[in-house]
Design a protein around this nucleic acid. Structure first.
Lengths: 236, 236
DNA sequence: GCAGCAAATATGATGCATCATAATTTGATG
DNA sequence: CATCAAATTATGATGCATCATATTTGCTGC
């Protein structure tokens, strides 16, 4: 890891602007780092995080790290198993099924809204993501495939113009990140196939079809995840 | 206000147990207090919060208050308009419409699931809330009416057995709290009427009807809120 | 050698000193 | 009296000392 800021207490000014004028203090920066670690599978389920250790690695004091970890604990992307034991939580089958039902409703809303207002540029953007995903799959680049899969889903939300929904879904994905990475790093990944019907519905500006297609993606594409969870739960 | 704990650094042990073994540090306690202030309209849109001031009122140091406020800023129940200016944000029409669409999907899921598994005890619980709400309305107790309205909606989620959804909806309601309180304190409140069809669908274990009914509640019952927002937006 | 207790260590929680900077006040100047 | 700049104040951000306690280690006595 690298120190966040060479100067004593200077803030790291980021080049991109967040939706809601997020004032980038150190805590938010650490939060973003940890989010990426979660989404890209660098933090695996069961992994323990220590505030002091992270602070040292990042070259900050404990305060910003504590801020970031508390945020992630709040939204249950991390869990405090005991008062001094902060870990990446394991997903349960029940929780996954609940999240799946929620995602079908919310991402269905996003897909429907996006399809109803799909402009050519938006379609092109989705096609680009899908095509790059196909390349990644052909090259067996699983990490890139996962990232592009995620990009596809969030592109729908952005095209729909629903920033509030984006936040909700981001927090949901934050909890699935370690799981998805764990599943796909050890096995098959057929997540791309189900994106083509979505694309087709978008081209036809058929909101209902798009919602159905994204629901099928979540159900069928996530089948491997469900099987993995059920196997793990049986094993103990 | 009152000091959170008489002893020096003693934690306030709460009698109820939160869902996910939330370890009640001072920050979480302050967070709960601020949430209640938001949901019950004691913090109105535009109100400014100062960390030191709150810390003094609560009898703690700034750290737990900062933790709590940062949590609320993260989930956009508070907004940092400038780096030193933390306020209860004003709702916009666009944001409200987006939230409304999301609520219809999510609370529809809750109502549907709840109706499909509605046991007599669950029905009785809902009837009790509605009946107490009717009493409150007759007595023109608007604050109690709002609280019971909220209880009704969250009771559906609890009956459905969807704890994860509960968290998502709680954060959404946190953002609507100041708005709802502001609207209903200055005008009509016809929010109870639309609960009876929900109750009827629950009794018949008709999930689809329950989802439609709660959607109608959100749309029609929230009409006053939308009109209020549109009027305020025109005014400037 | 092992049970059990004590010391040391680890770690999150809390309080607080200090910093940087934005807002406000004040006072000199014209 | 108006204006503008310097000083003061206010306030969130950061770093860090200290606390409480859970965990680990290690020593003692049997």
């Amino acid at each position: 890891m690298w120190p966040l800021s060479p100067s004593h207490t200077g803030l790291q000014r980021m080049d991109y602007q967040l939706d809601t004028l997020e004032h980038d203090n150190l805590g938010s920066t650490v939060y973003q780092l940890l989010c990426n670690d979660l989404l890209q599978g660098r933090l695996q389920p069961g992994a323990r995080l220590k505030i002091r250790e992270l602070a040292e690695q990042l070259g900050t004091s404990v305060t910003p790290v504590r801020d970031a970890i508390l945020r992630l604990v709040q939204e249950q992307a991390l869990a405090m198993q005991s008062p001094r034991d902060i870990r990446v939580p394991h997903m349960t089958v029940e929780r996954y099924l609940e999240i799946r039902a929620i995602r079908i409703r919310l991402e269905g809303l996003a897909a429907e809204t996006a399809a109803n207002k799909a402009e050519p540029a938006a379609i092109a953007r989705l096609e680009d993501i899908v095509q790059r995903n196909a390349v990644a799959m052909a090259a067996q680049d699983i990490a890139l495939g996962c990232a592009l899969n995620q990009q596809f889903h969030f592109a729908l939300v952005d095209i729909a113009g629903l920033p509030f929904l984006h936040g909700i879904l981001y927090r949901i994905w934050l909890q699935m990140g370690p799981l998805i990475a764990a599943v796909y790093q050890q096995g098959g990944s057929a997540m791309l196939d189900y994106h083509y019907p979505v694309l087709q519905a978008m081209r036809q500006r058929d909101g209902a079809a798009a919602a159905l297609a994204i629901g099928d993606d979540i159900l069928s594409g996530g089948q491997a995840i469900l099987l993995h969870l059920q196997a793990r739960q049986r094993a103990g």
